[in-house]
Write a protein that binds this DNA or RNA. Structure first.
Length: 292
DNA sequence: TGACAGGGGGTGT
DNA sequence: ACACCCCCTGTC
């Protein structure tokens, strides 16, 4: 049965105070927080957990559609995914933009950008695939992993495999999805999780510093990936992921030439405070817009 | 057009 | 510092 056979609900507006520009809307869905959104012309189609949803931006605001039969819990899940409980205007205001013109300009440019709240376990899985990869490549790996090892869900797409399914697939099958050396880390992580029931749930519930120190114990998870997982998959807005791009950007903007990633991360959290991750995301996005 | 070297949004040794 | 696996890029 093809995708065309699936019926989708009519478009309805989201019960969410979000009025992004097109650039901000696109950036939120495909700017490197999540890897399973596809642009289908006038709408985006995304998958997380066992949900498939379409979103589009109209003059009236953001609208959504889901495979029939739709139900209320899907909307609740979508709102959680979009961090509906977080007021990003409030967060913006709490950042030190009054004394930081770089930040002020980036915040103005990307006003309305949201930090997603994705399922913790699959955020970990996606970011384990991310080292030395570009966004498009990470998306392709995740898609192949879903098609090969994750179930078909309503709407015609596949969800990502669960950690149990990763374990059952085995390392060599994972390599078949083009993830290369990352397959070993991912399989080893699945084996760890198999023998540590409840580990993910516990780590997600911990405070930032504690959660991070636990995450970096996993094979293939260093500081950067741990911070991404906590920022985009656990709502820890103080997490400040430092990759080579943000390292260059921070060096340039804040005169931190020669600083190590760990030092820049420390600087970021000290300078931007408890919502450092949001500052990181807008600065990163603004830098990327300028560079190309 | 094809072959080939170089290197990537990171981590582990 | 360097390998790791894959794949994309620039270059000849």
């Amino acid at each position: 049965m093809g995708k065309s056979a699936v019926a989708w609900s009519r478009w309805s507006s989201l019960d969410l105070d979000w009025h992004p520009s097109e650039a901000v809307f696109n950036e939120t869905l495909s700017g490197g927080q999540a890897f399973r959104w596809r642009n289908e012309g006038d709408y985006w189609e995304g998958v997380w957990a066992s949900y498939s949803v379409r979103l589009r931006l109209t003059i009236k605001g953001v609208e959504w559609s889901a495979p029939k039969p739709s139900n209320h819990s899907r909307l609740a899940a979508l709102k959680r995914y979009l961090s509906a409980d977080i007021d990003f205007n409030e967060i913006t205001d709490a950042l030190p933009w009054r004394s930081d013109s770089n930040l002020e300009q980036a915040l103005k440019q990307w006003s309305g950008l949201r930090i997603l709240r994705q399922p913790f376990g699959e955020t970990l899985l996606c970011f384990l695939c991310s080292s030395t990869k570009r966004i498009e490549q990470i998306s392709e790996i995740c898609e192949r992993m879903a098609v090969s090892h994750g179930e078909l869900i309503a709407g015609g797409r596949h969800r990502l495999p669960t950690w149990d399914e990763i374990y059952e697939a085995g390392e060599s099958a994972l390599r078949g999805t083009g993830m290369g050396y990352r397959a070993r880390y991912i399989w080893q992580t699945s084996a760890f999780l198999k023998t540590h029931s409840g580990w993910l749930e516990e780590v997600e519930s911990l405070q930032y510093e504690h959660a991070k120190s636990r995450l970096v114990e996993l094979p293939g998870v260093g500081e950067k990936i741990a911070d991404c997982v906590l920022l985009f998959g656990a709502g820890k807005l103080e997490a400040f992921p430092v990759d080579t791009w943000i390292l260059k950007t921070m060096a340039k903007l804040y005169d931190l030439e020669g600083w190590k990633p760990h030092q820049v991360a420390h600087f970021g959290r000290a300078h931007f405070g408890r919502f450092a991750g949001y500052a990181q995301q807008v600065l990163f996005t603004e830098m990327r817009r300028r560079e190309g």
